[in-house]
Structures are given as C-alpha cells and as structure tokens.
C-alpha cells in the first residue's frame, strides 16, 4: 500500500527555501545523503544495543523527517528517541526500527524518481 501513496510532502521545505527547482533538488539530495548515513549509524547503534546513541541519532533525524513531511514516521521517530533516552519499552524497537528502514527506503525511491 505504501508503494502507491506519496510518503513525503515538500511543502514545508519549499516554504523555507522557495520553489526554485534547483534548490529543491539540491536539498532533496542532501536529505538522501545525510539521512541514509544517519540511518546506517542508527541501525548499528540498535544492533549494538547502544540505545543512548540510537536515541541521539533519532533526535538528529527527527527534524529532517519533519522537514520532508514524512508524516508516517513523525510519531515513530519520536518514540525511538524517547526509548533511547528512557531505555523503557525496548521491545517496541523490534517493530519500530524495521518500519523506519522500510518507509525511508520507499521515501528514497519516490524522491529519486521525482527528482530524476
């Protein structure tokens, strides 16, 4: 189902930088580069059970997810951040982390398709 719905909304980004296509493209590329890097680190921290680090990375990713209007992850990324900070409900991560990866991958695909 996720494949059929546009998972992001660039309105917020455009409101900040203007609608000039080159600028929009530049920032989408920047998001693709930086968020994928952060996601790799977040997965590593999760695997290593370094939840504090994982929470800090979720915090870092939070504003980018908000900016790119990825509504389906706004709540989830905050939950990961809180779990990392409080170290409670760790079992929820088993669902949340794969969801994060799955949706972000789909977002990347959709974005690349749009900018190309």
């Amino acid at each position: 189902m996720e494949e059929n719905i546009k998972l992001y909304n660039l309105d917020n980004l455009i409101s900040m930088i203007g609608s000039e296509p080159e600028s929009v493209k530049e920032f989408v590329h920047l998001f693709l580069d930086t968020s994928s890097q952060t996601m790799i680190q977040l997965n590593e921290a999760f695997e290593a059970q370094n939840y504090t680090q994982m929470g800090a990375l979720a915090h870092k990713l939070k504003s980018s997810i908000d900016l790119m209007g990825i509504e389906s992850l706004k709540k989830e990324i905050r939950t990961v951040e809180i779990i990392g900070k409080d170290q409670n409900n760790l079992q929820k991560l088993d669902d949340l982390i794969p969801k994060l990866n799955r949706i972000l991958e789909e977002v990347y695909k959709q974005m690349q398709a749009e900018i190309e």
Partner: peptide, 16 residues
C-alpha cells in the same frame, strides 16, 4: 546544528 540537512536549510534561508 548537527543535522546537516537542517543546518544547511537554516543557513540557506538566512543567507537570503
């Protein structure tokens, strides 16, 4: 700002 994306956005916006 450690989030490169967000930091660049704020920079871009203020540089206007």
């Amino acid at each position: 700002e450690d989030d490169t994306m967000y930091g660049e956005l704020l920079s871009f916006n203020l540089s206007l």
